[in-house]
Amino acid sequence: MATNTSKPQAPPQAIDLMTLPLQQLNQVKNQITQELQHLTTSFQQLKTAQAKFKDCITSIKNGLSREEGTPILVPLTPSLYVPGTLASPDTVLVDIGTGFYVEKKPDAAQEFYKNKVEELGRNLTDLEKIVQGKQGNLGAVEDVLRQKVIQDSSKAGEGDEGPG
Rank of each mutant, 00 (worst) to 15 (best):
A10T: 15
I57F: 01
L93R: 10
L39W: 08
T58R: 09
T58C: 00
T5E: 11
P163Q: 08
T70L: 03
A14D: 12
R122H: 13
K129P: 01
E35I: 01
E111T: 14
P106D: 00
K116D: 04
S42T: 15
D126T: 12
G99H: 01
P163I: 14
T85E: 11
I72P: 05
E118H: 09
Q34R: 11
T125D: 13
Y81K: 10
P89R: 10
I96C: 00
L20T: 02
E119L: 09
S42E: 13
G136C: 02
K54D: 07
K54A: 09
K155S: 12
L120A: 02
E35Y: 05
L145C: 01
V144D: 05
K52I: 11
L93Q: 13
T48H: 10
L73C: 06
S88C: 05
P8M: 07
L80G: 01
I60E: 01
S153W: 06
I72H: 02
E158K: 14
V141H: 01
V74C: 02
A140C: 00
D160N: 08
N123V: 04
P89V: 00
D16M: 03
P11R: 10
V131Q: 13
E35H: 05
L46Y: 07
K105S: 11
G63T: 03
E67H: 07
Q31Y: 09
Y81C: 06
A109S: 05
Q151Y: 14
G121F: 04
M18V: 08
S6G: 06
A140W: 00
S6T: 14
V28E: 08
G159W: 08
I150H: 06
T41L: 11
K47M: 11
I57W: 01
P12R: 02
V92L: 00
T33I: 01
P89T: 02
L36N: 02
E119P: 00
K155R: 13
F43D: 11
P78R: 06
I96D: 00
A14F: 07
Y81P: 06
V28D: 02
T70G: 00
K134P: 11
